[in-house]
Design a protein around this nucleic acid. Structure first.
Lengths: 229, 229
DNA sequence: GAGTGGTCTAGACCACGTT
DNA sequence: ACGTGGTCTAGACCACTCT
């Protein structure tokens, strides 16, 4: 008989999805619900807090809790390491380092990473294969001021993604998705044709307020990123 | 002196990001941490639970809590209604219904929505503009079996997205992102050139285990979807 | 001022999984 | 068997914000 927070959450969710509680309407307060469900207020609170985190309801002190008018639905994506992504599909992973060079950061990169004039960066180009088929092209720039130890890593065996995860496991990041056209060189890398539409991910990461790497990942033609919410 | 769950969470996070607690290492148990921080066990529990939800630590009964080896980082995206997305950018939103037709569902759609042979669907093609510039092309199919009331809606003023939100505000969805090439027709709609790379979103939604709509959204050339995590 | 959610506490019991 | 996290309780005080 005693309701758990999952029971309460499921019941409230059902009342919302079924339309019993319409968008915009006021939900009974925590104390009333606790009595209704025969549980403690903290139990109702947890259920409601999770629903609020998921964007289904809106809570304000004194004003109470309402079903959101326009539900702010959110989707969550795992940001995988490419090796794991490939191996989870049951395919064999292969990595290849195309080029490695230490250069002065070009202007566009200095602007993105907030680097001083003349700052040196490590520029890496790599390929990732699934069962021998091109899967992802990686164009990475590492800030050597923030990560001097990258100067001594050769990246011929271990990909920069995995190296970075061990060097700085937890960082802030900005990620963006877009569509780009394959130029002749990219088409060659990805076993595609020039002018193919490629799904592209760009990521910029910081650690302790210092930008350390910018990467542009181009997936083979036809790649999809999918999730449920 | 008394620590809140935010204090505890921030301190644990700092120990992880700074490397004091290395990936894979065991974190003290809740009771010990509660004593350390001078708070109740429930307070520590909430802090740790949130960190686990965010993918930074891994918790197992009896085995204890560890810093994740390969942090499963997740990014969250808001799934906006196009009108809001445009208006939040400070641009004027305009909607235009290109076509509306009730047809027998083509095979590929029947497979996706699990429809019976000969099932009727409402096919809508719409455009969304920001400050008069093409922003998004919408190709939508509505299951008339699941949503018979769509038969009587004309969609000339109100976009199907907003209509659906009012008809079935809360549903399950599968969303996927990819890159596609603009054909001549799409290029014309989006004021782009044939062969441009378009960022494309497909979404399939269910309500009470019944698929009700499939939509394919093509954004103007150069569109990006960005988030931080 | 008063009603609501936000959080904390001290204790308890349970579920799980390692040993 | 036993140690860990998972959850619930009853009560308390606080913070916000609406009236």
């Amino acid at each position: 008989m005693k309701a758990t927070f999952r029971d309460v959450k499921a019941d409230i969710l059902e009342k919302i999805t079924s339309g019993t509680w319409q968008p915009g309407s006021l939900i009974p307060n925590e104390l009333d619900l606790a009595e209704t469900y025969g549980c403690a207020r903290a139990t109702v609170n947890r259920a409601m807090r999770e629903l609020a985190d998921e964007g289904l309801i809106e809570r304000r002190r004194k004003a109470g809790t309402r079903v959101r008018m326009a539900p702010v639905r959110q989707a969550r994506f795992d940001i995988p390491i490419v090796r794991q992504e490939i191996e989870e599909q049951g395919a064999a992973y292969r990595y290849f380092l195309v080029s490695r060079a230490i250069v002065a950061a070009p202007d566009w990169l200095r602007a993105r990473l907030t680097l001083a004039a003349g700052a040196e960066v490590l520029h890496l180009v790599c390929m990732h294969y699934a069962d021998g088929v091109p899967y992802q092209h990686e164009d990475r720039w590492i800030n050597l001021d923030a990560l001097p130890q990258a100067r001594d890593a050769d990246f011929s065996e271990l990909g920069p993604n995995e190296w970075l995860v061990s060097a700085i496991p937890y960082s802030d990041a900005e990620i963006s998705f877009s569509a780009t056209l394959a130029d002749a060189e990219m088409a060659d890398y990805l076993g595609s044709t020039e002018g193919a539409a490629l799904f592209t991910v760009e990521r910029l990461t910081w650690w302790q307020d210092k930008a350390n790497t910018y990467v542009r990942l181009s997936f083979r033609h036809g790649h999809r990123m999918t999730t449920r919410y």
